[in-house]
């Protein structure tokens, strides 16, 4: 919508700029804090400009194990990345197949299957965490990537969203493909997946961030520093007992933890916009 009123343009831009500044301020303070020596942070008022340490804190964090964690931040980033990718990709594979079955195949109790999947929306990880922990422990998956990923990859949300999209695909398209000799797998690969590209891209972003931000589950099932994720480690860096909190390390790690989700959004944004402008259907 566009109104031909110059005053409105200026006012709305001013509002947007103020909003952006407000959101950016904490990020900036975190960044400037991460470029100071620890001593600076405790002897002076909160810094607003880049300090003398520059990017030294970052270099050190990425290369050397952090004493309070027993792992370097590079490992943390790698673990988080693996977990988030595993969860996002796993969720997409499972929900694509589940939604495909529910929408396009006729079998007994199809409705029941859908509703069983659907009601799991009401049971988040936190509610079923003890039984899940027991299962994972019995399967010997504590302190492993499989243990981090597998319990989280079933997704009612993604199944539901894909089901809604699949329902909009005209029956004739399915029939045309049948007549063209495309079996179920080929229909999925050649027609359904290309058509749901943009939906899958959107789901990927949401699910990647969901996986990246997992806190409680990794905290419970990993004790080995080799499997520590970056989000869990942030909290751990703050618990120093009697010592001083190394704020320059905490803020630097925070900023590093924000990086991958931001990159995923920036990269996937292309597909969103393409999906909005250049609709396939």
């Amino acid at each position: 919508m566009r109104y031909n009123r110059p005053g409105l343009d200026i006012a709305s831009h001013a509002l947007l700029i103020v909003g952006c500044a407000l959101f950016f301020l904490p990020v900036w303070i975190a960044f400037s804090a991460s470029t100071h020596e620890m001593g600076d942070l405790y002897s002076n008022v909160a810094p607003v400009w880049i300090g003398e340490a520059g990017l030294d804190n970052y270099r050190q964090l990425l290369a050397d194990p952090v004493s309070s964690l027993g792992a370097d931040v590079m490992t943390l980033l790698f673990n988080s990345m693996l977990m988030a990718l595993g969860i996002a990709i796993g969720k997409i594979i499972i929900s694509v197949l589940a939604a495909y079955a529910i929408v396009f195949f006729e079998f007994r109790f199809r409705k029941l299957c859908f509703w069983l999947i659907f009601i799991t929306l009401m049971l988040p990880v936190e509610v079923r965490i003890l039984p899940t922990f027991k299962v994972v422990a019995d399967l010997n998956m504590l302190d492993s990537y499989a243990g981090l990923i597998l319990p989280l990859i079933a997704s009612a949300t993604a199944t539901f969203l894909l089901r809604q999209f699949y329902l909009t695909i005209p029956a004739e398209l399915v029939e045309a493909a049948r007549i063209d000799g495309a079996g179920p797998w080929r229909f999925l690969k050649d027609i359904l997946l290309p058509l749901s590209k943009t939906n899958i891209a959107a789901l990927f972003v949401i699910m990647f961030i969901y996986g990246w931000n997992q806190y409680l589950w990794p905290l419970l099932i990993t004790t080995d520093a080799d499997y520590l994720t970056i989000v869990v480690s942030l909290k751990r860096m703050l618990t120093t007992g009697d010592g001083l909190v190394p704020w320059q390390d905490v803020t630097a790690t925070t900023l590093l933890a924000m990086g991958p989700p931001v990159l995923v959004i920036l990269f996937m944004q292309r597909y969103f916009i393409k999906g909005l402008v250049d609709s396939e259907k």
């Binding site: 005209p170 004739e172 398209l173 029939e175 045309a176 493909a177 049948r178 007549i179 063209d180 000799g181 495309a182 050649d190 027609i191 290309p194 058509l195 396939e280 259907k281």
Partner: peptide, 30 residues
């Protein structure tokens, strides 16, 4: 027999073209 095995071809009311494929690929798919 399955539709594909009957050696028939069908033209649908709403055309049912594959939206993500070019005209060539639409015709070549079968």
């Amino acid at each position: 027999l399955e539709p594909a095995e009957r050696d028939i071809a069908m033209v649908f009311q709403n055309y049912a073209l594959y939206p993500h494929m070019s005209v060539f690929d639409n015709m070549a798919y079968g």
